[in-house]
Design a protein around this nucleic acid. Sequence first.
RNA 1: GCGCCCGUAGCUCAACUGGAUAGAGCAACUGCCUUCUAAGCAGUAGGUUACAGGUUCGAGUCCUGUCGGGCGUACCA
Length: 548
Amino acid sequence: MSLKPLFHQAIQNALLTLDLKESDLPNYTIEAPKDPSHGDLSTNIAMVSAKAAKEAPQSIAAKLADALRTQSDLFIDIGVAGPGFINIRFKSSVYHQEMKELAEHANVFGRNKAFDGKKIILEFVSANPTGPLTVGHGRNAVLGDTMARLYEWCGASVTREYYFNNAGRQMRMLGESVKARYAQQLGKEAELPEGGYEGEYISEIAATLVEGHGNALLSEEGEGVFKEAAEKTILEDITRTLDRMQVKMDSFFNEHSLYENKAIYDVVEKLNEKGLVYQKDGAVWFATSQLGKDKDTVLIKKSGEPTYRLPDIAYHRDKLDRGFDLCIDIFGADHIDTYPDVLRGIDVLGYDVSKIDVLVYQFVTLVKDGKPYKMSTRKANFVTLDELMNEVGSDVTRFFFLMRSPSTHLEFDVAQAKEASDKNPVFYLQYAHARIQSVLRKVSEELGENRSGDVEWSTLEHEAEHSLMKKLFFFPDVIETAARAKEPHKVITYLQETAQEFTHFYHECRIMGEPKNVMASRAKLAEVTATVLKNGLSLLGVEAPESM
RNA sequence: GCGCCCGUAGCUCAACUGGAUAGAGCAACUGCCUUCUAAGCAGUAGGUUACAGGUUCGAGUCCUGUCGGGCGUACCA
């Protein structure tokens, strides 16, 4: 279903006849050359093995090419080029055979076994319930969810977890803020606390409380009913927002449970047994300087409250205890510093650190009126995810967040996103899909039920048909690469190229009005392309419309 | 100061993780709608990959240094 294994196998067979042994070979790669005139696939095997074999790369390549010629009937062309690349071109019949197999289960095409049977937990969003999700959280949510989908397509069973903390100063402040608004709405003198939350949503929560309880709550503490009401409402709102974005969490993990079951104190105890814990200035310290860090780290403040690092370590231990093979955290660049401390802790506790991995993404810079825009949940001058989706919809929102590599800053021009949505690249993909469906409807009218019958793949000989087929074959590789590298944008790049190949084919090769066998095979090729586009878009959480 | 990330076309970004002549979209320009969706296609123009060294058959990609930007560097989360 993918061309690479065919070539790989042929190389293995050819090697048997040469002196070169597989064990002598460093890792060689098989790639599709950028320039298609070089061939369908290319390998650097001769170059990378030249040193060990003490032989010129061109000479090795020539021998190997000869062996391939005599042993394999898959190729129409085998050549040696440049510094020692071996380039091959497959016979048409290979394309047709592969297409036949692909078409038989196109709807699952792309699924692979790269993470087969693995239990993976992804932690993402994890915003504390102090306000609505912002554009900044959006990138986190979409990256996490899309990674989850990618792993699922690679055979893993995936848990999406939202880790949150409903205690601490922020939440206290939230309760006080709601209480202040509540009192104000009842005509009492009250001021927002210093550093309180100013957003409109606070007033709305207060208004609901006024409606439900009148002035009965005036004597209550901010930390009590007010905080609880705010937390409940905000978490519901967050869930609704995620829902709109096609993000569904499998579990919510409350940080507080790690206090209740004493997990955090057990961590301190275990670390203490290793002699890595001490007291100083009334606080409890983790001797991270003995583990390669330049200074030690506070685990429990002198107030008796743990810092976030302690529950973080306990949380990751909990995940490993739950039997996950891989724990991935999706972090914004500002949280990256917690990661090494967690690893140190987990390592000392005797767990396999390699099971913990992190996807760090850079910040979203919001651009408004051509200027960068500073956001703060507390000041309420943020743009919420809901507002954004009201303007451009969930498809465009998700696509936008995924378009760029996580390691680069994402510039989000609000004005541009709000206007001219027809210039957005997501529509190019959706349009290609809709256009295929439209053609297929016409073909079905023409051919009736016969359309899905036996397809004469051998009629597909046009250059445009070949390059489209070739593109399709690589889909599973792309998914695997994107999952391993944790770079979902690779899927987008691929889909755009695929849509481009399709429109090229669409303009070069008419479907309607051709002889029936040609019409049928081209329609089938178009149909499979649509399915691949749809599969890819579903990985991104984006709709593949039947018409536009 | 130190740590992590980034610097590629006018702008926003790719480049299959070390491969061959660095590619797309937007913006600009030239063509193409009496035959399957013009939200499209074909073409033109645009580059010393921040800079200087190094590693090797081969560097945008790896190493060292310099410059510039972002984020950290809390007994905040």
